[in-house]
Design a protein around this nucleic acid. Sequence first.
DNA 1: CTTCTTGCAAATAATTTGCACTCCA
DNA 2: TGGAGTGCAAATTATTTGCAAGAAG
Lengths: 135, 135
Amino acid sequence: MKNTKQRGAIMKILEESAEPVGAEEIFARLRGEWPNLALSTVYRNLERFAGEALVHKDVFNDGVVRYSLSGEHHGHYLVCTGCSNKIRIDDCPLACLEQGLAHDTGYEIEGHTLTIYGKCPECARREKKEQRKKK
Amino acid sequence: MKNTKQRGAIMKILEESAEPVGAEEIFARLRGEWPNLALSTVYRNLERFAGEALVHKDVFNDGVVRYSLSGEHHGHYLVCTGCSNKIRIDDCPLACLEQGLAHDTGYEIEGHTLTIYGKCPECARREKKEQRKKK
DNA sequence: CTTCTTGCAAATAATTTGCACTCCA
DNA sequence: TGGAGTGCAAATTATTTGCAAGAAG
């Protein structure tokens, strides 16, 4: 894999951001510094990185694909369906389940997506207030 | 919600299929019986159903949104990243984790998405063969 | 040099929307 | 009958691809 400046710039964004980022977002953030960077270059490199297992690729519920460095510590989120506030879940109870599955099905497990949805205390309270108003 | 024949037909597909189905797939399956059903009607109704919590909406790793009846017994899938073959996972190890989270964060947990990805034995074998060819 | 990469523009794929017409309640 | 629902075509959005020109080793 050749070492090009656009490749480096894309990787730097990935390194700097704590949360997964999408191609369009990376493109927007690099627009200033690299005015004639092509969006397709971003997509191609992200796909490349994912292929080489340098980054982890994930499709979110909004349909956008986001990437994050694979070195980063594996984690999931608890997302509030009211205000979209996110809490990281460090505990991941799936390693064991995956082993069992690999054994039972013969699949080579590559990974998983897990996101938990709920209402944070404020949103839950607000929602109940609104329901009372309606009646 | 009015009871139209296309709405019924879409719901019937949902009821008949054990696995989550996408809009294009439902459209394809109904084209024979309803030759001038519009794809947009399928999309609109699925969104509607999801809004009324009649069906569960989920974005898969291939970027396609698939829907399944919410009444159905809760379950997750092991999806092959090669051929998209799906195996249902009846075991769900999250109830306990969710209780702990509710206690720790004060959130009212509403649900979660969990999908495991891997390669089925055939796809894994095929992929290895192709890699060897390249060298 | 020569192969890997990029930029640009055009092509897809999945989904959404505007609008006139249709059909259930 | 009146508004919810539909079909059709055109618009969006996210992503992919073909190809000639450019840069890295």
